[in-house]
C-alpha cells in the first residue's frame, strides 16, 4: 500500500480547549487510485490533507497516529527527510489559484523551483522542462507565459499552472484540495479531466478533496465521507451512490439534484449546523441533525465498521448488519 493512515488525530489547541479538526481517522491509498474525500466546510478534509504533508499551520498539530508513506512514518520524519518528500513524492494543489501563487514572482520563477530544489538542476536546464509542463496542462504560448505574473493570467490558467507545478516531478501522490471550487463551472470539468488524465498517465494516486458529490462520482475510485473530523462512511464509489448507508451520506445525496432522478422530487437539505469541533457533544456527532437518531446514538459514538467487504460505515443502525 502506497499510503496508509492510521488513527490520525490533528488538533488545534486554543488556550485550554482543543479543536478536533481530524479525529482518529484511518484510510489507505493504493497506487494509481483516486480517492474522493467529501464533506462540508470545516469537516476536517483540508486538515487531513495538510496533515499528510505536515503542513498544518500553528497552533494545529498532529497529536497522534501514523502516516505511513511507502512504509515510512511521515509524522516521525526529520525536517530534512520531510522536505525531500514534499513536492517530490507528494504534491498538493490548493483550492484558490488566486492566492496560492506568489504575486511578485513570475510563473517561470515559481515553476523552476521544484526542479532546482529536488533535482538540483540549473535554471537553464529547468526552463525547457517547465515549458513542456505548461504545454502538458494546455497553456497556450507557454514560452512567453513563463515570464508572466499570476495577475496576468485568468483563474483557470493559474490553476493549470498550479497543476503543472504539482506534477513537475511525477509525484506518487497528488493531493488536490478543492481544485476547482474557485473556478467557473465551464472550466471545472476541463481541469478535472486534465488532472485525471495526467495522473493516470503518470500512474500517480490522487486524493481528490471536494464537497461536490458529482465530481466524486465521476472521478473517484473510492470515496470517504467525513463529518466533524471523522470518517463516517468509506466505500467504492459505485456502492456508495447505489446504497448509501450513513444518514449523513443519504442526506448529502438527497440535497443535490441528480439527472437520473424524477425531476419532481424535491431536494431536501440536511437541517441544522455541523457541531462545534472545539466542543463536540457526547455520542454520535451527527446526532442533532440525524433523522433516524435513537437513544444509544447519544450515549456512545459509533466507530467505523465493515458493512460489506468494501463498504464501511460508522452508524449504530448499521451495526448489526443489513
Amino acid at each position: 500500500m502506497l499510503l496508509k493512515v492510521l488513527n490520525l488525530c490533528t488538533y488545534y489547541q486554543t488556550g485550554s480547549s482543543y479543536v478536533r479538526a481530524v479525529d482518529d481517522i484511518s484510510f489507505e491509498l493504493a497506487k494509481g487510485e483516486t480517492l474522493g474525500v467529501v464533506g462540508e466546510s470545516g469537516c476536517g478534509k483540508t486538515a487531513a490533507a495538510l496533515s499528510l504533508m505536515r503542513l498544518i499551520p500553528s497552533p494545529g498539530r498532529i497529536v497522534s497516529g501514523k502516516i505511513l508513506f511507502e512504509g515510512k512514518d511521515i509524522t516521525a520524519l526529520s525536517i530534512k527527510e520531510l522536505l525531500s518528500i514534499r513536492g517530490d513524492q507528494i504534491a498538493m494543489i490548493f483550492q484558490d489559484p488566486m492566492t496560492a501563487l506568489n504575486p511578485v514572482l513570475s510563473i517561470g520563477e515559481q515553476l523552476v523551483e521544484p526542479f532546482m530544489i529536488h533535482r538540483r538542476l540549473s535554471r537553464k536546464v529547468a526552463i525547457p522542462l517547465c515549458i513542456e509542463l505548461l504545454n502538458k496542462v494546455r497553456i497556450p504560448d507557454a514560452g512567453s507565459r513563463m515570464k508572466s505574473y499570476p495577475h496576468e493570467l485568468s483563474g483557470g490558467m493559474r490553476q493549470r499552472v498550479m497543476i503543472a507545478m504539482a506534477l513537475a516531478l511525477n509525484p506518487k501522490i497528488i493531493i488536490a484540495d478543492e481544485p476547482t471550487t474557485a473556478l467557473d463551472v465551464s472550466i471545472q470539468a476541463e481541469l478535472l479531466e486534465l488532472l485525471k488524465n495526467i495522473t493516470r498517465e503518470q500512474n500517480a494516486s490522487l486524493m481528490l478533496i471536494t464537497h461536490n458529490l458529482g465530481i466524486v462520482a465521476r472521478y473517484a475510485d473510492r470515496v470517504m465521507i467525513m463529518y466533524a473530523g471523522r470518517i463516517v462512511e468509506k466505500a467504492f464509489t459505485l456502492n456508495l451512490y447505489q446504497t448509501p448507508l450513513h444518514p449523513y451520506t443519504k442526506g448529502l445525496l438527497d440535497s443535490v439534484p441528480r439527472l437520473n432522478q424524477n425531476n419532481n422530487k424535491k431536494l431536501t437539505p440536511i437541517k441544522g449546523q455541523p457541531p462545534d469541533l472545539a466542543n463536540l457533544p457526547q455520542g454520535c456527532a451527527f446526532y442533532e441533525r440525524c433523522t433516524l437518531k435513537e437513544a444509544r446514538c447519544k450515549a456512545k459514538a459509533p466507530t467505523l465498521k465493515k458493512f460489506t467487504c468494501d463498504h464501511e460505515v460508522a452508524c449504530w443502525l448499521k451495526e448489526e448488519g443489513k
Binding site: 514534499r86 506568489n102 530544489i117 529536488h118 507545478m165
Partner: peptide, 13 residues
C-alpha cells in the same frame, strides 16, 4: 498568505 503554504508544499525549507 496562501502562497507561502504553496512554497512549503513544494519542499522549500
Amino acid at each position: 498568505q496562501d502562497f507561502i503554504r504553496t512554497a512549503y508544499a513544494k519542499g522549500l525549507s
